[in-house]
């Protein structure tokens, strides 16, 4: 099995890494690039905790080889905040209590971010559909859906919204 020198474009930065073909994008992010936002839970495509975006589309990084991610614009949860400043979506997760243990959160954020970039004003059904492949073991789905709805459009549609 040959080693390969590859360049990945992650959060608009070019990163050079040496990988084996059998390393997944998730392995490389976490083990080689110290980007531990994306989480491994099931490792087999079921749970969504490893979700990142490739060219704006949410994908499972546990089922994507790192070598196959060459040429794509990869966005991870680390790419959401601007320095210390959280994105509206991240802040909304905090404000709405959408984070419990937090293990599913990076994946939820990446699926939700991809949705909001395509659809600025999704209804609840669209939000639920976009998040359908992300499992929250703490089962805080209602708050998560509210947090996404609020990030799209702050306002009174969200029952316990403080703003």
């Amino acid at each position: 099995m040959e080693k390969m020198e590859i360049t990945l474009n992650i959060n608009d930065k070019s990163r050079e890494v040496t990988v084996h073909p059998n390393e997944t994008l998730l392995d490389v992010l976490r083990e080689k690039l110290d980007m531990i936002g994306a989480k491994e839970s099931c490792g087999e495509g079921v749970c969504g905790s490893c979700t990142v975006q490739m060219d704006g589309k949410p994908v499972r990084s546990c089922l994507t080889l790192a070598v196959e991610a060459r040429g794509a614009k990869i966005k991870t949860v680390e790419g959401l905040a601007d320095g210390e400043e959280l994105s509206d979506l991240q802040q909304s997760f905090i404000d709405h209590g959408a984070v419990q243990c937090g293990f599913c959160t990076p994946g939820m954020l990446m699926s939700a971010d991809a949705l909001l970039n395509e659809n600025h004003n999704p209804d609840e059904k669209a939000i639920r559909k976009a998040l359908a492949g992300n499992i929250c073991r703490c089962t805080g789905y209602a708050k998560i859906v509210q947090a996404v709805a609020h990030a799209a459009e702050p306002g009174d549609h969200c029952s316990d919204c403080k703003s």
Binding site: G45, V46, G48, T51, M54, K57, P58, V59, R60, L63, T64, G107, S111, K129, A130, A132, G133, N134
Partner: peptide, 10 residues
């Protein structure tokens, strides 16, 4: 088929 994030794009 599965969920948007699993199969639809890949």
């Amino acid at each position: 088929v599965g969920a948007v994030t699993i199969q639809h794009h890949r």
